[in-house]
Design a protein around this nucleic acid. Structure first.
Lengths: 348, 348
DNA sequence: TCCGCTTATGGTATCGTTCTCATAATAATA
DNA sequence: TATTATTATGAGAACGATACCATAAGCGGA
């Protein structure tokens, strides 16, 4: 690496003061066009480029936002949903000339330590937390030190004091369940996720409401909250089919699980979608690639990411702005995984 | 945000010099255990935490590595392959206490500008370039300013002077083609990617060699190099089937394309894998989810990422180390997308 | 001609660390 | 006891850019 040219070198060569060079850098109106030209020419000649670290030190702002992921073993990294959020964040950051700083930890504790480091170490101006989980230490920590942050997902507590971006997961889950009910299904299985996560609770709630409002009783054996992120699809399929009165439709919280369980069902001779209708959430490429292509709730992952970054940046610009929350609308994308329920033992 | 406690505050309260505090921070052996204890106690009391920006300025090292992606419209962000490399990089970074800085640009030019900014602005100690493309400006730029970098993918030129991590794509492609040939296939279609990319050229070369060494003539109409990253699968399927003598097997460079074209073929009544064997590259979740599950070359994406980060960090530690290259072995993962070719018009 | 006002620029402290050099205190040696 | 080595700490100059205050030059008005 070549040695670096500093503002002082430029100043010396251009016969001006360092402060003048700094002002040229920020295109201050207090500097004459003539000097600006002169200084810029010298900058070019010397190949000067600003060193951000110097600036950061005095301005106390890094123009960088930190992204906190959930532990990567929770297949967050290989999940296209994560990538798409990242994409949305990335776009918004670019539009506003911000950079991205990523956590790298594999355990809750490691991630927490990294957050402390990046917050206290002033490496970022604000952070986006990509999850909302009960018992999480990161969010309370950020609140306690009054560090600007935005959550992607509804906070576990203190809604009014926290800026967040989310879908209306209760409604979305109710909608997709209603959709199945409209198709004539009544024995609907629900395969949800780890109930530590707010999103899992909301979606279960939505499912419950839809069933209740339609006067359908919820059978416990049809409700599974899968605590691990990589359940055994064979086992899930087996359990469902071995029920005395198996469901005719399934709501999955996770596309990937939906897809693998569908395969397991098909392998057991279940005709999809004729004998089992299946829906899921997120609408990433997983839904498109499933067999049959999955009807899903599009949660607009890119939008989610984009909005959270946009709002964080706004918060950084105007720290006294109110802590609003943004709800991104969801859309049901119909594909080929659902069918009208066949009337069985049809009574005339 | 609360005001921050600096090294000087600690020094004052502990009745020592700032330099002493700094030495305690780095656990220098020149400080007595007694003072260390005293200073650490004060740090705790005041809630002191180091400000990295100060350190960065003097040490001229950020402990951060930059990641340069290809333009995100090339579906890099939604591609699980990208995420998995990122995962590998992330792991290696964490092991070595490095952080990740991500480019956010959408166009080649924007990314180039960002790289210049992060290199000249000293925001990162080194960078990983996640692609190798003809006509790329980023890599020549990094070379020119002698900035430490590692490529993920074989460089277009100057192998000896460039550190890179890659698969042996020629061999991998030859292997997977041989695999099809062993199954009795001769009319094998090849659907490759944008030939600007080194990886696309290598894989085509491997395919050619396998065919040549087996004495099979390559028909031009069976060779497609798809220049866009989102080709129309319907069209590809249509073109293949409307050939006077359609292929019995297909090699895809891209899993996603393989998966969508398979679906299009199935929709046209082609029985998979009986009437058409299909293989692809990368072995992400896409292959697992395809119908039928795709036989692919596992390129070990996590390993690729992990090794590139590890080697970059090594290069940063020992700048004079030779510019080695690392080849990650590939493995063919057999699933259900290939079948022995049926003998047609079998002559006794 | 002098005063005050604006404009363009210079000088320098500052941000929070680290690092070099100096020095006080102690221990080891002659 | 005087002299040298060793150890533990302090003082202060970097690092690179910014921002405040100062000031010189130029100009208009009384």
């Amino acid at each position: 690496m070549k040695v670096s040219v500093t503002i002082k070198d430029v100043a010396k060569k251009a016969n001006v003061a360092p402060s003048t060079v700094s002002r040229v850098l920020s295109d201050s109106p207090r500097i004459s066009e003539k000097t600006k030209r002169k200084v810029r020419k010298v900058m070019d000649e010397l190949g000067y480029h600003i060193n951000y670290n110097g600036r950061v030190l005095v301005s106390q702002s890094t123009q960088t936002i930190g992204i906190v992921t959930k532990v990567s073993s929770d297949h967050s990294f290989e999940n296209p949903f994560f990538s798409e959020m990242l994409r949305g964040i990335s776009d918004a950051c670019h539009e506003n000339d911000y950079s991205i700083y990523l956590t790298t930890g594999n355990t809750e504790e490691a991630i927490y330590q990294e957050v402390v480091k990046m917050v206290q170490g002033k490496r970022v101006d604000g952070v986006i937390v990509l999850y909302s989980r009960e018992g999480d230490k990161v969010v309370p920590y950020l609140r306690e030190c009054e560090f600007p942050f935005v959550m992607l997902g509804k906070p576990v507590e203190k809604f009014g004091e926290t800026m967040y971006v989310d879908n209306d997961n209760v409604q979305a889950s109710k909608d997709i369940t209603d959709y199945l009910i409209t198709l004539g299904h009544e024995r609907i299985g629900y395969i949800g996720g780890n109930s530590q996560y707010e999103v899992a609770r909301d979606r279960l709630e939505g499912f419950r409401r839809a069933m209740k409002e339609n006067g359908i009783e919820i059978k416990d054996e049809l409700l599974k909250n899968i605590q691990t992120d990589k359940p055994d699809p064979e086992q899930v399929a087996e359990e469902l089919l071995s029920l005395p009165d198996p469901p005719t439709a399934l709501v999955f919280t996770d596309e990937y699980n939906a897809s693998t369980v569908m395969r397991a069902l098909a392998a057991r001779g279940v005709k999809l979608p004729e004998e089992m209708s299946v829906v899921g959430f997120n609408n990433t490429m997983i839904s498109r690639l499933s067999a049959p292509p999955l009807t899903t709730v599009d949660t607009q992952s890119i939008q989610l990411g984009h909005e959270s970054a946009r709002n964080l940046i706004e918060l950084l610009k105007y720290p006294d702005t109110i802590k609003k929350s943004v709800i991104i609308p969801t859309v049901i994308v119909e594909r080929e995984s659902c069918k009208q329920r066949k009337a069985e033992n049809s009574q005339p």
